[in-house]
Design a protein around this nucleic acid. Structure first.
Length: 585
DNA sequence: CAATTCGGGGGG
DNA sequence: CCCACCCCCCGAATTG
């Protein structure tokens, strides 16, 4: 029971730790500036009621958002901010160069106390069509760790932020990724509006009806008529039965026709002059839709007019999100016709314009590139006017080449022009590449840190130029390019791209947080329903659409200032207010 | 037999 | 000379 002192802090303090207890209750404690509990620990019988009774709490500190927030949402308790201890642990470990150590709160506490560190539990697979992690309703929300121990872990994490290279940025990183966790849970709950009837019509039109018999995987029907026809056309072109879905068979068939190919990739087939090419390419496109986004996918993933993928903020090393199940970040363009707003509602589809080049301008502080990125207009056009005599495509390729680490082709010439005009920008990514080649770590603007090179740490070679490795099957005496081995160069391309892609992901977290807050503050019915690297979709009543579009643009600019500080770089969006996702752009 | 790898395609 | 970066998902082939 709360004593009088706790009742007082209840009113005054805005940071509380909380955990769910067995039977739907909660354990909670107000925290001081040092992250330590101010007084005792409270126990209350109803988790949701405990949260709803404390609207003054500005930040809820908990072990895992994915574990606790879905049930709060289900009970109608949206919260403003949280701090996700296990997510922060992952970011802090990375920053400390301890990538790969277990990130559970239990592991963190064990390290604190010099006890045996438990390995992380294996990630569970997504459950098709699940409303949320409802089957996790009761289980081990405390994960075997006493609440007091969890609080110790949190307090120590606060001190670890202080020791980061840029403490304020690191705090912003963990806070914004925690906000991302809230957004992820809320998007899962809202779901992307999905018209199964439209999807089915689409499939019937593209693939034709299904013949009887066939693998259940493909929706209880056999191979669709259109695929069977294309298989016949391919076979006719070769003069024998050929299975288009078996690369080995296709390679062999072309060989028999006197055409040697290394693979059956689309671009390679497109080079060939042969009657089988056209039906083959058509087959591949449709086959992909059939297997990955066909009737079976629809059955597995769409419930009651919504597609509810599980979003994982920071799911990739660079900080980009992943989704778990359903392939939500790879929805083919043609399938987007099935994403339709509810009656009287709209989809506001917003795409950040040339996000990565703008981020490079912001992080490198290159004066010329900041100038180019300081306008809302097309960045590549503006770039080409300055340095590529008006050739937009050359400008674009050069910039992307610099960001990706292009090593050959026409882009290299253009890269030289880029280097002359934007020396700081190119130096920024070159430095990141050099760090990677030398086995050093690099960080995003906010402090997300690259994983170490494989075998780094055991080797004394970090920082020492390595010899090129002989190619398998080569006769030795391999020509060496610069100093770095093939692996080191690959790593250089990775770290080069990491600082840009990752800093863009930093910005995207702030964008989502700002947008979420703006929607709430304006009291809109709008819901964030989709996020894909540089693109957001908000589902809202038609009369809110203009306000939402404006809120997105403002959130983009705000995210730019919060993430990168004082910068002239703009972060504009292309927004479309549509009823169907496929009508955007 | 299940688990892993390969080849191909989808997204940014 | 490595022939750009980050991913997910599928079926077939291969491996344990």
């Amino acid at each position: 029971m709360p004593d009088a002192r706790l009742d007082r802090v209840n009113e005054r303090w805005d940071r509380w730790a909380i955990e769910a207890t067995e039977g739907g209750g909660a354990r909670l404690a107000p925290l001081g500036d040092d992250g330590l509990p101010l007084g005792g620990i409270l126990e209350e019988p109803d988790l949701t009621a405990a949260v709803l009774a404390r609207p003054h709490v500005g930040r809820w500190v908990w072990r895992s958002t994915a574990e606790i927030y879905p049930r709060l949402l289900a009970a109608g308790a949206r919260i403003e901010r949280c701090y996700d201890i296990e997510d922060a642990e992952l970011l802090l470990l990375g920053h400390e160069g301890r990538y790969g150590e277990p990130r559970s709160a239990a592991a963190s506490w064990a390290r604190l106390r010099n006890r045996p560190v438990p390995p992380d539990p294996p990630p569970r697979a997504a459950e098709p069509g699940s409303q949320s992690s409802l089957f996790e309703f009761e289980p081990r929300s405390t994960a075997g760790l006493p609440f007091e121990a969890l609080l110790e872990v949190y307090a120590e994490q606060q001190r670890r932020h202080d020791r980061a290279e840029h403490p304020a940025r690191m705090r912003l990183l963990t806070a914004s990724e925690s906000a991302g966790m809230l957004v992820a849970a809320e998007m899962h709950r809202s779901g992307l509006p999905w018209r199964a009837d439209v999807h089915r019509e689409l499939l019937d039109g593209l693939l034709g009806e299904r013949y009887a018999s066939g693998s259940p995987r493909t929706g209880g029907g056999g191979e669709p008529r259109r695929l069977a026809e294309l298989t016949d056309q391919v076979s006719a072109a070769f003069g024998r039965r050929v299975r288009p879905d078996l690369p080995a068979d296709v390679v062999k068939a072309f060989g028999e026709a006197g055409m040697r190919i290394k693979s059956t990739r689309r671009w390679e087939l497109a080079e060939l002059d042969h009657p089988a090419v056209e039906p083959l390419i058509a087959y591949k496109k449709l086959y992909r839709i059939w297997t990955a986004h066909g009737w079976s996918w629809l059955h597995d993933w769409v419930r009651e007019g919504r597609f509810r993928p599980e979003f994982t903020p920071g799911g990739t090393v660079s900080g980009r999100w992943t989704t778990n199940g359903g392939g939500a970040l790879q929805i083919p363009k043609v399938i987007r016709q099935a994403v339709v707003a509810d009656a009287g509602w709209r989809l506001v589809v917003a795409d950040a314009d040339q996000m990565e080049p703008r981020v490079l301008a912001a992080i490198s502080r290159d004066p010329g590139l900041m100038e180019v990125a300081g306008h809302d207009g097309d960045l590549y056009t503006s770039l080409s006017d300055r340095a590529f005599s008006g050739d937009r495509n050359h400008a674009k390729l050069a910039l992307l080449g610099a960001i990706y680490g292009q090593t050959s082709g026409d882009g290299l010439k253009n890269l030289a022009a880029l280097r002359r005009r934007f020396p700081l920008a190119v130096a920024y990514v070159d430095d990141a590449a050099k760090a990677g080649e030398e086995g050093r770590l690099v960080r995003t603007w906010l402090g997300r840190t690259s994983p170490p090179a494989l075998g780094a740490g055991e080797s004394d070679e970090a920082g020492i130029p390595q010899e090129a490795e002989p190619q398998p099957g080569s006769s030795g005496g391999e020509f060496t390019y610069g100093y770095a081995s093939r692996d080191a160069r690959a790593r250089g391309r990775f770290t080069r791209n990491f600082v840009v892609q990752g800093s863009a992901a930093d910005w995207a977290l702030l964008l989502l947080a700002a947008l979420r807050r703006a929607i709430t503050a304006a009291g809109l019915r709008a819901e964030l329903v989709f996020f894909q690297h540089d693109e957001v979709i908000v589902h809202c009543p038609a009369d809110e659409a203009d306000v939402v579009a404006k809120a997105i643009r403002e959130a983009g600019e705000l995210a730019g200032r919060i993430t990168f500080g004082d910068t002239p770089v703009r972060f504009p969006f292309t927004t479309a207010i549509v009823e169907r996702y496929s009508d955007a752009k």
